[in-house]
């Protein structure tokens, strides 16, 4: 023990320094794009040509002004919000009913339904697009909210069913039995007892599924081709195509586009982390 107090070097434990060093590098790598994005968005186009790495010498907010007032970012975000809300609401409602039946009722094909539904989590969304695109073109459903919401809701539902079923199964059987003795029907049990107990699972579900819809690009560019229906992610692809040469302006757009999710993440870290772990298959 006495030996460890002999000098300064002995107290700066080399293994600790090494571990902090490793984490420091990891943090640097993880943050570099965000830092670059924010710093660059504050530079003038001219400054960026000679100062690509350092902080802006003379910060300007012009790019944010252009993004806020002269671009369609708000409209794109609005569209993404409508789709995410619609798809999550539809999928959650359908999955709650289905998962309740799978977890708590007896019927033929119950096991099969659950296995098939769970397996669908591993099926790539791109496999579904060709027939749906042909069908939607026929039915005039391309570039409609309800058409896209239906597809998104379907794609996120296998995960919803999986998560809710496993959660519903953990609710003690006695709760159901006593409610039934009191004369409650299934729907009443589901709404009054099961759902309130399932709030953590439901929150996880909303986080994972909303993020999936919000971040999706594939379905968005195929099924929402109309300018007025464009989502944020599809909008970003258009935006970078149009203003890609003006890097500080592009970065201001990216800062603005990522702000909602980053703010939500910082506010609800715990739910995000546990939710995305549970939803890592998506």
């Amino acid at each position: 023990m006495a030996g460890s107090e002999t000098g300064f070097l002995a107290r700066v434990r080399p293994d600790l320094a090494l571990k902090h060093g490793v984490l420091g590098v990891a943090v640097l790598i993880a943050l570099a794009p965000t830092v670059f994005m924010v710093l660059t968005s504050l530079k003038s186009e001219e400054e960026y040509t000679f100062n690509k790495v350092g902080p802006p010498a003379a910060p300007v907010l012009d790019h944010y002004r252009s993004v806020l007032f002269a671009s369609d970012f708000f409209a794109w975000m609005g569209n993404s919000l409508v789709l995410a809300a619609g798809a999550v609401a539809l999928s959650t409602a359908v999955s709650c009913l289905g998962a309740y039946a799978i977890a708590r009722m007896q019927f033929a094909g119950r096991g099969l339904l659950f296995s098939v539904s769970t397996s669908l989590m591993a099926v790539p969304p791109v496999v579904m697009i060709v027939p749906l695109f042909v069908l939607y073109a026929q039915l005039d459903l391309i570039s409609t909210y309800h058409g896209a919401i239906l597809i998104y809701a379907g794609l996120i539902t296998p995960f919803s069913v999986y998560l809710l079923t496993t959660f519903f199964r953990t609710i003690p059987r006695e709760l159901f039995e006593s409610a039934r003795i009191d004369g409650a029907g299934d729907l009443r049990i589901l709404v009054r007892i099961v759902l309130p107990l399932s709030l953590p699972a439901l929150l996880t579900l909303v986080v994972v599924n909303a993020l999936y819809v919000w971040n999706d690009l594939l379905i968005a560019i195929i099924f929402l081709q109309d300018d007025a229906k464009r989502t944020l992610m599809a909008g970003i692809s258009v935006f970078q195509g149009r203003y890609g040469d003006q890097i500080p302006l592009t970065m201001a757009g990216m800062v603005f586009a990522s702000a909602p999710m980053v703010i939500l993440y910082i506010a609800f870290q715990k739910h995000y982390i546990s939710g995305l772990m549970a939803g890592s298959i998506k």
């Binding site: 009913l97 309740y100 019927f107 669908l120 496999v127 239906l150 597809i151 379907g154």
Partner: peptide, 28 residues
């Protein structure tokens, strides 16, 4: 009959978004 009423929307949604396309990609 009740359980089937509960899973009907689920089955319909999965059939539309997964079932129908899978059959049709093989046909197409």
């Amino acid at each position: 009959i009740a359980p089937y009423a509960y899973v009907l929307p689920l089955v319909a949604l999965l059939l539309f978004v997964f079932g129908y396309p899978v059959v049709r990609i093989f046909e197409f």
